[in-house]
């Protein structure tokens, strides 16, 4: 089964990069955000969150705690229950 941390990481990397790119090159703003490039700043925050989530997944896979690896045991548990 898919490890949920992978799509979370990928989504935030993608959307964060998209916003940061748009903010850096197009400088959008509203009257209340005139002093800050919100797209750029928040895009980077999201991008780094995505990186952090990716690092967590990578670390736990290395330490053998990946969600997928629990599945064979769970399958047996479920099969035993249904028997």
């Amino acid at each position: 089964m898919l490890d949920i941390r992978i799509p979370i990481s990928a989504l935030f990397l993608g959307v964060g990069a998209l916003l940061a790119f748009y903010g850096a090159f197009f400088h959008p703003s509203t009257p209340a955000t005139a002093n800050i490039n919100l797209d750029l700043v928040w895009g980077l925050v999201m991008f780094f969150f995505g990186l952090g989530m990716g690092a967590w997944t990578w670390r736990s896979r290395r330490s053998g705690d990946a969600i997928e690896r629990r599945i064979p045991a769970d399958r047996e548990k479920t099969a035993a229950r249904s028997r």
């Binding site: 959307v15 903010g23 197009f26 959008p28 703003s29 209340a32 797209d39």
Partner: peptide, 14 residues
């Protein structure tokens, strides 16, 4: 609508 510029508006809508 009032506070978010383009891009952030897309994020809020998402």
């Amino acid at each position: 609508e009032r506070y978010y510029p383009s891009g952030m508006l897309g994020l809020g809508l998402t």
